[in-house]
Amino acid sequence: MGKKLHVTTTINGEQVEFLCEARQSLLEVLRDVLGLTGAKEGCNNGNCGACTVLFDGLPVDSCLVLGVEAEGATIQTVEGIACDGRLHPLQQCFLEGAALQCGVCTPGFLVAAKALLDKHPHATEEQIRFELSGNLCRCTGYDKIVRAVMEAAKEMTHA
């Protein structure tokens, strides 16, 4: 067992302190140290996107970030997408559009899609497919996911 390092960071708007080993990934820290199990491990090498979180506003695979790198950063996970007890339009559209089956890729898709709509509120189908290509889904064939993101975009820009 290695020496533990002290890290101060901001997660879902709250300042958080934790101890971790240098070798622990941000994903392991979120899940095992902080109990935020929304981000999932699908491959642990950056090829499925199930562990996507926002790191200083940018989508990253949290399996490819060291926990210690979170020092001073601002992190948002799927647990922080709904606010004040209300679902984000993306979450609502995923539910209404049946855009999930087993649900294990869903947190990663939601986080990546949020980053996408924050940046491109009027994202086209092609943009959505391109920007979400780092997230694998094996259940839905992507159809309903892409539609849900387009629907959420529509709602958010008309709100």
């Binding site: 199990t37 929304g38 799927v78 997408i81 709904a82 539910l95 209404e96 999930l100």
Partner: peptide, 23 residues
């Protein structure tokens, strides 16, 4: 009809417990 699935809210908020999440 197309009701919202009963386990949906847990799955879009990251609260659904899969085996790897069990503590």
């Amino acid at each position: 009809t197309r009701p919202i699935r009963h386990d949906g809210a847990d799955k879009v908020t990251g609260r659904a417990i899969y085996t790897a999440d069990v503590k």
